[in-house]
Amino acid sequence: MTPELSLVADIGGTNTRLALASAGRVQHDTVRRFANEGRQLPDILQEYLAAVLPDGRPTRACLALAGPIDGDTGAMTNLSWTIRAPEIAAFTSAGRCLLINDLQAQGHALAGLDSADLTAIIDVTPTKNGARLVIGMGTGMNAAAVFPTAQGAFVPPAEAGHVNLPANTENGRRVVDWMLANLGQAQVEDALSGTGFVKVHNALHGEALTAPDLLELVEAGDEKAVLTMETVVALMGGVVGDLALTFLPRGGIYLTGGFASAMTPWLTKPHYNAIFTQAFANKGKISPVMAAFPLYVIGDDFAALQGCAAHLANG
Rank of each mutant, 00 (worst) to 15 (best):
L20I: 03
N142H: 08
T125Y: 00
F154H: 12
L18C: 00
I69G: 01
D55M: 04
V175E: 07
L245K: 07
W266M: 05
E230V: 08
N314I: 14
P270I: 11
P126N: 09
I286C: 11
E159D: 11
F293H: 06
A181N: 11
R57E: 15
A143T: 04
P166N: 07
F302C: 12
M263I: 08
T210A: 14
M141T: 15
Q46Y: 02
A21T: 02
N78M: 10
A291F: 09
P212K: 08
L243C: 01
S261I: 08
L118A: 10
D29F: 04
A262R: 03
N182W: 10
R84F: 01
G67M: 10
I298E: 04
M1Y: 06
T73H: 05
L165R: 13
A94P: 00
D70I: 06
D10N: 06
N273C: 07
V146S: 10
A23Y: 02
L192G: 11
G194P: 10
G238T: 14
E159T: 02
Y254I: 04
L20A: 06
L5Q: 13
Q46K: 13
L267T: 02
D102V: 01
A274C: 01
T14Y: 04
R84E: 15
T277D: 04
A225I: 13
L214K: 12
N129A: 15
A51G: 04
V198H: 13
A279K: 02
E4D: 14
G130T: 10
E37Q: 10
K199Y: 07
L243I: 05
G56I: 01
A19N: 08
